Simulated assay, not measured.
Amino acid sequence: MTMPVNALGSALQQMQAMAAQAAGSSNVADAGAVGESGAATAGAASAGGFASALKASLDKISGDQTKAMGESQAFELGASNVSLNDVMVDMQKANVGFQFGLQVRNKLVSAYNDIMQMQV
Rank of each mutant, 00 (worst) to 15 (best):
D30E: 08
A56L: 15
S25V: 14
F100I: 03
A20G: 02
L102G: 02
Q117E: 13
L58W: 07
A39T: 12
Q14M: 15
S110H: 08
A29V: 06
N27C: 00
D114G: 12
N85D: 15
M1C: 12
D64C: 13
Q21C: 14
A68G: 05
N81F: 13
A20R: 09
I115G: 08
V104R: 03
V96F: 15
M88R: 11
F50D: 13
Q92N: 14
V109K: 00
Q117L: 13
K60W: 15
A56R: 10
V34D: 02
Q14F: 09
F98M: 11
G49T: 03
S80Y: 02
Q21W: 08
G101V: 00
M3T: 09
M1P: 12
G48N: 00
Q92S: 14
M15Q: 15
M15V: 04
V28K: 08
D90N: 15
V89S: 10
D86A: 08
N106S: 12
V96C: 03
G97D: 03
A56G: 14
A74V: 01
A7S: 05
L8C: 01
L84A: 05
A56K: 09
M116C: 02
V120W: 06
A74D: 01
N81H: 15
A20L: 07
Q65N: 07
A40T: 01
A44K: 08
D30C: 13
Y112S: 14
N95H: 09
F98V: 04
E36G: 15
S110P: 05
S80H: 05
A79Y: 02
Q119G: 06
V104Q: 03
T41P: 06
F75M: 10
S10A: 13
S57H: 04
T66L: 12
A94T: 00
G38M: 01
M118F: 11
M118Q: 08
M15C: 10
G78P: 01
T66D: 05
G97S: 07
A22Y: 07
V28F: 05
G43D: 01
E36Y: 10
D114W: 05
G35C: 10
A47T: 15
A47L: 07
M88C: 07
G78Y: 03
A33W: 10
N106V: 04
N27R: 03
A42F: 12
Q16P: 13
A33L: 08
A20H: 05
